[in-house]
Amino acid sequence: MSGYLTGVLVVLAFNVMAAYAVYLPMAAGQLNLGIAGFMAIGAYASAFLTNEYGWSMWTAIPLGSGLAGLMGIIIGIPVLRTHGIYLAMATFALGQVISAVFLNLEVVGGAAGYPVSDYASPQVVWAAAAGVVVLMLYISRTRFALCLTAVKSDATVADLLGVSVRGMQVAAFALGAAVAGFGGGLYAHHYNFVEAQHFNVLLSVFTVLYVLFGGTQTVWGPLVGAAFFTLVPELLRASDQWRYAVFAAFIILFMAVRPQGLVTTSLMTLFRRRRVTP
């Protein structure tokens, strides 16, 4: 495989993981605009463990992911008291604060960045992304996922039916944070370098953008969205200068025509019916 293609596919794997980190809380109706902050936690925590304590990345990355998840719970509990746009803004602020904290944290290099010793090969990154997708497919088949959708579509009624709305929201938020931390940890170990500036607002915002673009009605949406956002700009490379402009224009027009995103429930039903009726 050419180095170029490998590089693109690795980026795709990272984008897929980020997409699911955004998707989980969104399935419960929460817009997390601070996903980059949780990636940063996973990246820095795991890098710190491999660098300073000589841990292997196989244990450091899961721990970093767990730590991001834990932060998701601790921060999620007060932050998730807010709703709608307030929640979006709270997570947005949260992402900014987290990455600014790392920017000022001298033990992990501060603004100069932080080199990482252990290396995660492209194969490892791909396997990890595949693992995340499988996990998400599994979750989407459970009652937990059903509860998340119920909370999203009518939290008042879900509550009256006995669903712990706050519990589900915090769980989805924290799980998303853990997935983000997992992706962040791998990112640090694949590129062998972390810098706080990478985990900025635009990373969070773009991730949300392609999840919504892919569609949030089904578990496939984020995957398709991430693939589209990673691959299409690459294909547009010929018109180098124009590619982002063209791409943005495309998104605007697409969302105007199909606001529910690319992959929808009815689209999936169509697929399934095709399969049964020969």
């Binding site: 599994y138 088949r141 459970t142 009652r143 937990f144």
Partner: peptide, 8 residues
């Protein structure tokens, strides 16, 4: 119950 993949 929450983690049972009943759809499968």
């Amino acid at each position: 119950a929450l983690l049972t993949p009943y759809r499968l």
